[in-house]
Computed example of a mutant assay.
Amino acid sequence: MRREGMNYRVVIPVLNQLRYTQQCVDSLLASGTPASALLVIDNGSSDETPRWLASRPEIPAIRNRVNLGCGGAWAQGALHDESDWVVLLNNDVVVCPNAMDDLFAAADRHGLDVVSPALIEGPLDYDFVQHAQKFREAMRGSLRRGWFHGVCFAVRRRVFEAIGFPDTDRQLGGREDVEYLIRCLRHDVPVGTVGDVVLHHFGSITQKAMKLESGQDDLGDRAHFYSKVGMGWLARKRFKSERKRQAREWVAQERAAHGYAMHMLRKNGQWTDALYL
C-alpha cells in the first residue's frame, strides 16, 4: 500500500484471540493506516476469526490450514509483495495516532533499516491516547540504537534481500525476533527503537494461550536456539549480561533526559521501567 510516497505492508499473524485482533485493526485504521496496507495471516484459527475476516473483505488476509508459527507467518507476509517496508506486528497491541508514518520518518532521520516503536506492556487500565501524547512529546527524537523488539518491528525490503527473512524454525518458539536481531547486528544492519511512536502491548496473549493449551512452559527449545545462533555456554552468559547492562544504562539515560523510559510496564495501576531486553 502506498501512502504519502511510502510503500508499506503491516503483517499481523493471528491464532484465535479475535477480540485482540479487532482492537489491533481498529487502532491501526484510526491511526491513519489504510485497510489495504494490512495483511492478517490467520495461522489456522478455530474461533470466529475466519468468519470475521470473511466479513471484512477490505482487509487483505491469508488463511493457513495449520499454524506456521510466528516466524513462518512473518516470512510469508514479507514475501507477499514488494513493499519498501514490512511491519511485523503482534495482534495484541493498540497503536498511537499516525504510528506508521511517524515510525518510518524516525527511521529515516536516524538512518535505520529496522526500527521498533517504544513499548508499554500490561493491562490497558489508563488513557492510552492521553499518555501516548505526553510520552511522545517528551521522547521525540530519542533512540536506542542496536535494539528492536518482536512486538513490532519494521524492516526495509533491502534487509530481506541482504540477509534473508525471519527464520521459520518452529523450535525457536518465540525467539524468532532475537534470532533476527542477532543476524542483523552481525551483518551491520542499522537497527534501533525510537521514542517518536509508542504502542501498548497486552502481553504475548497468543503465546500464553498456546502454552496453557499445550501445558508447556516453553514453546521452543532454548538450547536449540543458542546452538543455532552459534553461542556456547560462555557466549550465552555474556550475551545475557550485556543485554541487562545495556537495558539498565538506557533506562537511566532516558529517565534523566526525558522523564520516561522507552520500555515501560503497567502493573497494579503503577508504572515501572523494564530493566531487560
Rank of each mutant, 00 (worst) to 15 (best):
D221E: 08
C152S: 12
K244N: 10
A257C: 12
G44R: 01
G220Q: 11
K244G: 09
F148W: 08
Y126M: 00
R156F: 12
M231P: 03
E161N: 04
F160R: 09
K211C: 10
H258L: 06
E161I: 03
E176H: 03
V95C: 02
G164S: 01
G111D: 07
Y260V: 07
E121D: 13
E176V: 13
H258D: 08
L112M: 02
P57C: 02
D125F: 01
G259R: 06
G192M: 07
V155C: 05
D113P: 07
N43C: 06
M1H: 15
V10T: 12
D177W: 04
P117G: 06
R245Q: 09
S116C: 03
W74Y: 14
R183Q: 11
V14I: 04
Q246L: 15
V194K: 04
H224I: 00
V178H: 13
G164N: 02
R248W: 08
E254D: 13
H201C: 05
G69D: 00
A154I: 12
K237Y: 13
D84V: 06
R238Q: 12
K244V: 15
G150P: 02
R144S: 15
V251C: 14
R56N: 13
S241C: 12
E58R: 00
F128W: 01
W52D: 02
F148S: 07
H110V: 07
D188F: 06
P13T: 05
G269W: 09
D92R: 01
A162M: 06
E58Y: 00
Q23W: 13
R9F: 03
A107P: 01
A105G: 02
A261H: 11
K267Q: 14
S46T: 07
L79G: 06
E179V: 11
R238E: 10
V95E: 01
F225S: 05
A107K: 01
L185K: 05
S45K: 06
D108M: 08
N90D: 09
R157H: 10
R156L: 09
K237N: 12
V14G: 05
V198F: 02
S214V: 02
G32Q: 03
V155G: 04
T33M: 08
R156D: 12
G71F: 06
W74F: 10
D113S: 15
L15W: 12
T49P: 06
R140P: 15
L234P: 06
K208A: 14
Y8R: 00
G230P: 05
S36I: 04
R3G: 13
S142V: 00
A154W: 09
L68C: 10
M139I: 04
A78Q: 02
G192C: 06
V94W: 01
A30C: 09
V229Q: 00
G215Y: 07
S142Y: 00
D218P: 09
Y126I: 00
V151Y: 05
G146V: 04
A154Y: 08
E176P: 10
S227C: 14
A118F: 06
P166Q: 03
V251K: 10
Q216M: 15
V87Q: 11
R2M: 11
